[in-house]
Design a binder for these strands. Structure first.
Lengths: 153, 153
DNA sequence: TATTGTTATACTCTATAACTATA
DNA sequence: TATAGTTATAGAGTATAACAATA
């Protein structure tokens, strides 16, 4: 049985050489867990939810901008936006000065869906965090901004 | 512009209430980044790679066990295993005592593919970690086992 | 009968190529 | 001509339902 157990992750992390491996394993596993915790009750696909999330961070975006942000090709984004439009979660309008451009924005009901989805995702994690010691929570508080910076690098 | 910036993550993390949100955001972002860093050069799909990874942690598994581990239905796993078999990455043998069961195991070439993929994924993170201060690396060293425990809860 | 895995079939998501409409 | 987006079409990946082989 070659499975990497929690204690092995701690051991790995002790050296600079092992830190990268330990961090990758633990971050990927926790992310997978958080993702599954969400998927269980959401009726929107991961893809659709990602587009709503991106839109909520940018307010309005064009099809091209959305495609670039989600790293898909424009035809795929056309399809996704059409589907979200049918569900009443986004609005499509023509750009004021350039009529080739389609401007996409969230509807009120989308804001509610996003908030609810986020609330559910955090409920599970919140519960787990309350089971940690104050010192462990402090470590995570210190670590969060560093992890964030790594992701932006 | 509603985008959550690194400084906001640090601010969020200061309170117990905000820790869950800050941690979720930073972990999900770093995981996405790590995943993309891998996808860029791998010719195997994320799904195929996940199956190889699971097999490398368990040595031999049946189709049913693999389906359960990857949270897909048996017919989907049959398809995936057939494809990996065609690529020469896994072997299918019949179980000794129960001839309904298919036992799947990695080939030598799969071990090489897994090692190479893992090496690539870690190269990017390794480089980022060297840019941190020793104190920041220590914080991550402390955090890794806690993150791992959260994912197992 | 129950279980393990497969085949048949359909749906979703994605891609490339060819097209329309604006600029 | 070049650009933004769409339509047409095809290829993965997944699911459910029905089936075969074995227990």
């Amino acid at each position: 049985m070659l499975r990497v157990m929690p204690t092995q992750v701690a051991k790995l992390a002790r050296t600079d050489a092992g830190l990268s491996s330990a961090l990758r394993i633990s971050v990927m596993r926790l992310a997978r867990r958080l993702r599954n915790e969400r998927d269980a009750r959401d009726d929107l696909s991961a893809n659709h939810l990602a587009v709503l999330g991106t839109l909520s961070r940018h307010d309005t975006m064009t099809i091209g901008e959305l495609a670039a942000a989600e790293k898909v090709q424009p035809p795929s984004m056309t399809r996704t936006v059409t589907s979200l439009c049918d569900k009443g979660l986004v609005r499509r309008t023509t750009h004021d000065s350039d009529r080739r451009v389609v401007v996409v924005s969230l509807t009120e009901s989308a804001h509610a869906v996003i908030a609810e989805s986020r609330r559910r995702k955090e409920a599970w994690l919140n519960h787990r965090l309350r089971e940690l010691t104050p010192a462990e929570r402090q470590t995570l508080r210190d670590a969060a901004p560093i992890l964030e910076r790594l992701s932006q690098a």
